[in-house]
């Protein structure tokens, strides 16, 4: 089935929305991963120290946001005008979002780092 036929059958494709939802979940998850990783590795913390007065927080957030926007742009281009399995994608996005909340919770990060 061509994209044109598919779009004609579904006048409101959910692909662009799925791209926004999944990339947001992934971006938040990457933020959590980078926060814990920078906390556990002095080398990574130094590498992510983009702006010294703010410390590694500047790099953690800048990299996470850059990857979120990049992922969003790629997925939006791939799923443009396409219907996708939104339920599965939203499930994955919410799982990533829940993990990001866990990873940004200091006791959980400390647990992962064996403290």
């Amino acid at each position: 089935m061509t994209d044109i036929t598919r779009a004609a059958q579904n006048p409101t494709p959910n692909g662009p929305v799925a791209a926004a939802v999944l990339s947001c979940g992934l971006g938040c998850f990457l933020l959590g991963v980078l926060a814990v990783a920078a906390d556990g590795s002095k080398g990574l913390a130094a590498a992510l120290n983009f702006y010294n007065p703010s410390g590694p927080l500047s790099g953690v957030t800048t990299v996470a946001i850059a990857l979120w926007l990049l992922c969003w742009a790629i997925l939006a281009a791939r799923w443009k005008n396409k219907p996708v399995a939104f339920g599965k994608i939203a499930g994955a996005a919410f799982t990533l979002l829940a993990l990001s909340l866990l990873l940004t919770f200091p006791p959980f990060g400390d647990l992962l780092l064996g403290r």
Binding site: S23, C24, G27, V60, I65, T104, F105
Partner: peptide, 15 residues
């Protein structure tokens, strides 16, 4: 906790 979890809010709000 605050310095990291805060960033989730504008990212999600933007979406």
């Amino acid at each position: 906790w605050k310095e990291h979890v805060a960033w989730i809010a504008p990212m999600a709000a933007t979406m």
